[in-house]
Nucleic acid binder design. Structure first.
Length: 959
RNA sequence: GCAGGGGUAGCAAAGCUUGGUCAAAUGCGCUAGCUUGAGGGGCUAGUGUCUUAGGACUUCGUGGGUUCAAAUCCCUCCCCCUGCACCA
């Protein structure tokens, strides 16, 4: 099958018919207005071509869109491009600098020649290049997108829309201003994110406590993760090789003089206002003593090599009883007898000096020994949970509780302050500078901490359908912990912040209600062409989205049209993305909808899918295992990719793309195709009878044909719920794998398969419609070969055809049980043949159980107890006469009671299945003579064997 | 640390809500036979251990418990993954 030729053919046909460009209230030919269905998928960020992973979300969305269309809905699936933020700028810069790594990635992974890459130094060109590439890929994937509504988030009309949104937020009191810390590059004077750093390291910011010890002319600040151990401080540590300064600072509104290393002075000056007063040598510091902030005792300052001058303040407090490094350093100095460790926490299994005890036990040599880290980790974890504070006022608290309490007390007393450090320091900016934490002033926030807003958002969530359903609690948790979210940055593409135009609205804040913009985008674009972007203004948006009529004028035709579009399409019926967006974008999306729109326009559903792995491994640039989508399309064909990325895992799990799976799918499609060819060649008159009933169209309604159609219609019956619930994996597997297995069994059971080819026409018609949302191109091709039969909705394209309804009358569960029974019997025969090493039996005698046995079986299943079974048997006239046999059988059945809870066929049905299949069984077992008998007519010579006959399990005698 | 998810046969992955038809679907891999000029592909059977009559025995991270019966319910412990923000 030439997948690529088909793709072009059918994509062209859809395009020509404009089937993906819905109009308002479009009515089908039957007359009744269609229900609308509006769904979106997270729009892409075009700084690279898309890869196979992106295809998962879009394909899932498209399947849903196509399914909904086939259920008779008027479907809108739009797409745009998100270009907001700094990564595109950063990338353009790297291209300008001819960054080798980037050129290599583009060339080796995406096949973009350096001569092309080098032209993308302008961010706008870069956006246009990659968005064109992505759009082409989406079209090749056959996504049923209405491209008339496409926009970019740097378009003026979209900027106006976002400014309008922020105006609304501001008016509702949801925009605040303040300062907050960010990872920062001091050279670029920019916040840094993961994409700005060497090796794409995400800078991890961490809040720590700095305890202030009065000493000399000021204070020695020491950073600690364990403020609860403060009562156990015996001394402070200074690195004897570091250089120190005395600096003046304002901490918690009080001027204080602080001792710091030169390095930390540089780092911290971005976080606090610091003025250097003078340089101080390590020796000068070592000569001082410090005052313990709790006990007010004088404690010594000692030298230690493990103190890193570049971390924190470059000064460290010493708790030898609980911190292995402190204890080791004291031992290295031979001071353990002078400076006695002070126990703060009592932990089971340890004495008065846990750190020392653990170091001895683990054999840690000295402060430069790596294993000190491990000892620290172990002890910290243990004491946090199991340690109990000894001294008042914290006595009895465990480590975790005490930590919070002491931290609070110290800060209130002015003996400590909070600061931020980079936990994974050192992190380097691409420019080479070492990143720091910067306290940014004049920062604008969206206040997701607002209580009333949270409540409204919870209300909206409660009214939504969340798929997979387990994510609901993730949403609830996220709504709970969200606080103020910084919504502006100094640079980036996108929209200017309306209340400070030197700032740009940041990327996650300008993409919360863009779904509303799609509804009117095509109209807004037209208006812009006519009267300029300024005509798309606040009054326009107020009218279109909120229905507020302009004071002085009547709404123009364009305004009315836009308002109608919005009212028709909103609310959004389904929002699709990968599940990583739940904790940010999707939650903001709900928040902002409740803030801006009327309740009737709040969103109805989110669907979040997992990622795609490549041959079992996570895709990454560094691994070089990224499969670009268009390359994959060229290699495997669209429908194969659509099938694999959606069917190889449940919705929430990661699906895997691998060559074997893709080839397996292609092979199966080809198998069906060749069968279809055979089917359409066979033109029986019954097939052509125009509105023939199902039975007339299938003259050979023998057991196996009826079985096959029973299976098919059962699948068809289940399919709608599977589409609705995104159970695409079982659905897709049923369509291709199970169906082909059924076809094989059908063929094998049919003595003359040509006679059955005509019977497969109904199968192909139903299968094609059922599979169309997942494999639309294959479906169209099949549809055409079936003669574009006017089967369901007078549709010459599958894409416009209605989803078929299952014919419940054709579903026969007992028929399916019969085939399963036959397969079990065959398995048993094979097993026995193998055991007795007879691969060509001459005769096989099958003896079906006597009817009374089924009664006994039912009694055993009911009573589960031999005495009760016998009591019940006595009341049955037939069983009463057979008491010894009944007792023997019941005893046998009860041993394996678990195996008899299921339903089995009646003896009569078993007889039918087997006698119907004598010819088949003979063929299967190399021409053996097959005899089928009922137990009561079996010759007495076989009585020893006939006793074995049970419901569901005939006695088998092989000779 | 907090929150969420997960550990099933060589691999991937269903089953767990509602305990029994579960030695556990399905796909891949592997073995054998058939088909094909070969390869590919296709078809059939097998793929925990033992077994010359359809059986028995041991398995679903660990250790307990409930039950006539546990992959499935309850508890303990171990291990893995993801998110915790200003970044798209």
């Amino acid at each position: 099958m030439d997948f690529h030729a088909q793709q072009r053919k059918w994509q062209g046909a859809w395009d020509h018919a404009h089937v993906f460009e819905p109009t308002l209230g479009e009515a089908p030919k039957s007359g009744a207005a269609k229900d609308k269905f509006y769904l979106t998928a997270a729009f892409p960020y075009p700084n690279s071509p898309q890869h196979i992973g992106h295809a998962r979300t879009y394909t899932t969305t498209d399947i849903y869109a196509r399914y909904s269309r086939s259920m008779g809905k008027n479907v809108l699936f739009p797409m745009g491009f998100h270009v907001t933020g700094t990564p595109i700028l950063a990338m353009a810069k790297r291209i300008e600098a001819r960054d080798k790594e980037l050129f290599d990635i583009f060339e080796n992974i995406y096949g973009i020649p350096p001569s092309t890459t080098s032209t993308l130094t302008n961010p706008r060109d870069l956006v246009l290049y990659f968005s064109a590439e992505i759009e082409a890929g989406m079209k090749e994937m056959g996504y049923s997108i209405d491209w008339r509504r496409k926009f970019y988030t740097f378009d003026s009309i979209f900027n106006n829309f976002i400014q309008w949104q922020f105006g609304k937020l501001q008016a509702a009191g949801l925009i605040t201003k303040g300062s907050h810390p960010v990872p920062w590059c001091p050279a670029d004077k920019q916040p840094v994110g993961g994409h700005d750093t060497m090796g794409d390291v995400d800078p991890e910011m961490e809040e720590v406590v700095a305890v202030l010890f009065a000493a000399g002319m000021g204070f020695i600040p020491t950073i600690t993760y364990r403020p609860e151990t403060l009562p156990g401080v015996t001394n402070l540590w200074v690195n004897p090789n570091a250089h120190y300064v005395l600096a003046e600072s304002t901490i918690n509104k009080h001027k204080k003089k602080l001792y710091l290393t030169k390095e930390s002075f540089e780092l911290l000056s971005h976080q606090f206002a610091l003025t250097k007063l003078k340089e101080v040598s390590a020796d000068q510091l070592l000569a001082l003593t410090a005052t313990h902030p709790l006990t007010k005792h004088q404690i010594p300052i000692l030298p230690a090599s493990f103190v890193d001058p570049g971390t924190g303040t470059g000064l460290v407090m010493s708790v030898p009883a609980h911190a292995p490094f402190d204890w080791l350093a004291l031992r290295d100095l031979n001071k353990l007898d002078v400076i006695r460790p002070i126990q703060v926490l009592d932990t089971p299994g340890f004495g008065s000096c846990p750190a020392g005890e653990l170091c001895v036990k683990m054999g840690v040599k000295n402060q430069d020994d790596q294993r000190g880290e491990e000892a620290t980790k172990q002890l910290y974890k243990l004491e946090a949970h199991e340690g109990k504070m000894k001294a008042a006022p914290y006595a009895g608290m465990n480590g975790i509780a005490a930590k919070e309490k002491i931290k609070e007390d110290l800060i209130n007393a002015g003996s400590a302050t909070l600061m931020h450090i980079l936990a994974n320091a050192p992190v380097y900016c691409r420019c080479g500078a070492k990143c720091v934490v910067k306290q940014v002033d004049n920062q604008w926030f969206i206040d997701y901490g607002n209580g009333a807003w949270k409540e409204k958002t919870r209300e909206a969530l409660a009214g939504m359908r969340i798929l997979p359903s387990g994510l609901r609690q993730d949403y609830e948790y996220t709504i709970g912990w969200l606080r103020q979210k910084a919504c502006t940055r100094a640079s980036g593409l996108g929209t200017k912040f309306p209340f400070d135009e030197t700032q740009m609205i940041e990327a996650l804040s300008d993409s919360t209600i863009y779904m509303a913009f799609y509804a009117i985008a095509h109209i807004a674009k037209k208006m812009e062409k006519k009267s300029g972007a300024d005509s798309i203004n606040n009054e326009f948006f107020d009218y279109v989205f909120l229905g507020k009529k302009p004071a002085d004028a009547k709404p123009s035709a364009d305004w009315a049209a836009a308002r109608a579009e919005f009212l028709y399409w909103y609310p959004l019926d389904s929002s699709h993305s990968a599940h990583d967006l739940v904790h940010n974008h999707l939650t903001y999306f709900i928040f902002n909808h409740t803030a801006i729109f009327e309740k009737r326009h709040w969103p109805k559903q989110t669907v979040s899918n997992g990622f795609v792995t490549m041959e079992g491994k996570k895709m990454s640039k560094s691994m070089g295992n990224i499969l670009p989508l268009r390359k994959a399309i060229a290699q495997y064909g669209t429908d194969v990719i659509r099938f694999v990325v959606t069917s190889s895992a449940e919705l929430e799990a990661d699906s895997d793309f691998n060559q074997a799976a893709a080839e397996g799918v292609a092979n199966r499609i080809n198998t069906l195709e060749s069968l279809l060819e055979k089917t359409t060649e066979t033109k029986t008159s019954a097939v052509h009878a125009s509105h023939a009933s199902a039975s007339a169209r299938h003259p050979k309604r023998d057991r196996i044909s009826r079985w096959f159609y029973s299976r098919l219609h059962a699948r068809l019956r289940d399919a709608p719920a599977q589409y609705e619930n995104f159970e695409l994996r079982p659905l897709a597997r049923a369509l291709l794998y199970d169906t082909i297995n059924d076809l094989q069994w059908y063929a094998r059971r049919s003595p003359n398969d040509d006679a059955h080819s005509g019977n497969l026409r109904e199968f192909f018609e139903l299968w094609t419609l059922m599979a169309a949302p997942i494999m639309p191109h294959v479906a169209e091709e099949f549809w055409e070969r079936l003669g574009k039969k006017k089967f369901v909705d007078d549709a010459s394209l599958v894409v416009s055809a209605r989803f078929p309804k299952a014919d419940e009358k054709q579903i026969d569960f007992r028929l399916e049980m019969g085939e399963a029974y036959l397969q079990n019997v065959m398995e048993d025969i094979r097993h026995i043949c193998a055991l007795i090493k007879k691969d060509k039996p001459e005769s096989i005698t099958l003896i079906v159980h006597a009817d009374w046995k089924k009664k006994v079986r039912a009694l055993v299943a009911e009573h589960k107890n031999i005495r009760a079974v016998m009591d019940a048997a006595k009341t049955d006239s037939e069983l009463a006469k057979l008491q010894p046999q009944v007792a023997a059988l019941a005893g046998k059945l009860i041993k394996n009671i678990g195996a008899i809870t299921g339903e089995t066929l009646e003896a009569k049905e078993e007889m039918e299945v087997l006698t119907d299949s004598i010819g088949f069984l003979s063929t299967e077992f190399s021409g053996a003579k097959i005899e089928v008998l009922h137990e009561k007519e079996a010759p007495s010579a076989l009585s020893a064997k006939t006793a074995n006959a049970l419901p569901g399990k005939p006695s088998i005698i092989i000779a």
